[in-house]
Simulated scan of single mutants.
Amino acid sequence: MLVVLLSREQSRFFVSHLGAVEEVYRVKGQRIRGMLTDRVPRDRRDALASQILKDEAKALASIAETIGREFETSYVLLCAPPDMGAAFRDHLSKAALARLASFEAGVHASAAEIGAAAAAAQEQLRVREEHELVGRLLEADPAAVSTGTQETLDCLREGRVLTLVADDSYATPGSHCRQCQSLFEATQVSTCPICRAADVEAIDDLVEAALEQAIDAKAHIEFIRDPACRSAFAGMGPLRALLRY
């Protein structure tokens, strides 16, 4: 997640990943009122200050978009005064706006303090993402989603998995063919039904093995953790996939 703190004094940009928050960029704020000298008529100062604010917000939004692309962030968490926040939003892409949430923190806070302050907003985004994912699985064309755990494992072997979705609480033993790398729900497999090799081993965690194969295949991995989402996913899961083809 991209975490953005905006203020008149300075603007700070952080990246949050796996619970760690790191500051990656800082911009000194423009002293807007100080730029409006006595040479500017009083009746024009508010309009000029507003334009300067918009220009600054446009630049900050561009920085945010650039950092987001560089670090491949999925969401933006924003902390800003109302006027700066509104101007900043005006210059974000539609994709970024769809993945935006707000939180409150001090502009001089440490990275750890910012991480703690943003935790609730991060959780809110995570739950929202899970609901959207379950909705995609429910609404997907039957040909675009796997049916059942074994079919999901078969699709992994065939390289067809775009996104592997797993109930985070699910754990079960299974079997693994050392020859062709196939995975099976069944635990008592003596001969691989795919390559006919007799080199099949029992494994303690079928889900972990599936996740490793998904990573090797450069597939996305999504976990279902929210109780309401887990309940909706139960009828489909505990292991499903959105398919490439």
Rank of each mutant, 00 (worst) to 15 (best):
E158C: 02
A198N: 10
F103T: 04
E65D: 07
I215R: 13
Y25W: 08
E130R: 00
R69K: 14
A117Y: 02
V127R: 05
H91E: 13
A101I: 06
T37L: 10
L6M: 12
V207H: 02
R136I: 03
E158K: 11
A241L: 12
Q150E: 15
A217I: 02
G174H: 06
S50C: 00
V165N: 00
Q188I: 10
L92V: 06
F233R: 04
Y75H: 10
T37M: 07
G34S: 08
I32K: 02
A198R: 13
I52V: 14
R8F: 06
V127N: 00
L5S: 10
D168L: 10
E123W: 02
F13W: 03
A111L: 08
I194S: 08
M1A: 12
P41N: 06
A186E: 12
R39M: 10
D83V: 12
I63Q: 07
L183A: 12
T37G: 15
R160H: 06
Y245F: 10
I203W: 08
E132Y: 01
K54A: 15
A241C: 09
V24I: 14
R160S: 03
Q188R: 05
D216V: 13
C192E: 14
G85M: 07
L6G: 12
A87W: 06
A109Y: 03
M236Q: 04
H131L: 08
H176F: 15
A197T: 15
F13Y: 14
R26W: 06
A109I: 02
Q30S: 03
R12T: 14
I114G: 07
L2D: 01
Q10A: 14
T152N: 05
A80W: 09
V134S: 03
L97I: 02
K28T: 15
C155L: 10
R33S: 14
F223M: 13
E113N: 03
L206H: 05
I52C: 00
Q213K: 08
Q122P: 00
R244E: 09
A101Q: 12
A121V: 07
R244W: 07
R39W: 07
M1L: 06
E113H: 02
L138A: 11
L77K: 03
R126F: 08
L92A: 01
L100M: 14
E65K: 04
Q122A: 07
V24L: 11
Y75D: 14
R128S: 15
D46S: 04
Y170C: 07
A117W: 05
I63G: 00
C79Y: 08
C195H: 01
G68Y: 01
L92W: 04
H220N: 13
Q124I: 03
D226S: 04
G174M: 06
Q188A: 10
P238E: 06
E23W: 01
A86Q: 14
K54L: 11
Q122F: 05
A210V: 11
P82Q: 11
L243C: 08
I194D: 08
K54W: 06
Y25M: 04
G34D: 10
I114L: 08
V207G: 01
A197E: 15
G115W: 02
